[in-house]
Amino acid sequence: MSDPVTVALVFVGGAGGSAIRRLVGKRVGERYKGITFPLGTLLISVSGAFLMGLLSTLFNVDWKDRYGSNLTALVLTGVLGGYTTFSTYQLDTANLYNSGTRGLAAFYWIGSVAAGLIAAALGAITAKLLG
């Protein structure tokens, strides 16, 4: 498999994943309008982490070599990579911190990683139970 094909697949997957992220973020933002806590990003992070654990295990992907096949390039690196975001998570933390809600910022900062680690592990366990 040539590199340009992989990059093209990741482009398509990342574009789709990013568009889904925007839709999910928008829906959650509209539904919980008054809340300053970034629920949308948290939901995206946790669900993306769960799916990464689930699909990586189902596809039997070596985590150190995720650019192994077209399917992993499209789905894992592309869709899930584009769907989840590290930059917005950090920016949300900074915004919470700057708006004076420092306790909430710390909770979000640490809680996102803890929830993500657990979600990815649960995804892997679910995959093993499935087959």
Binding site: G14, A15, G17, S18, R21, I44, S45, G48, A49, L51, M52, G53, S56, W63, R66, L76, T77, L80, G81, G82, Y83, T84, T85, F86, S87, T88, Y89, S112, V113, G116, L117, A119, A120, A121, A124
Partner: peptide, 15 residues
């Protein structure tokens, strides 16, 4: 920036 960064790979690799 959202597409460049990723949360799922980060937590999965840590796990």
């Amino acid at each position: 920036m959202g597409g460049l960064s990723t949360f799922s790979s980060f937590v999965w690799a840590t796990d």
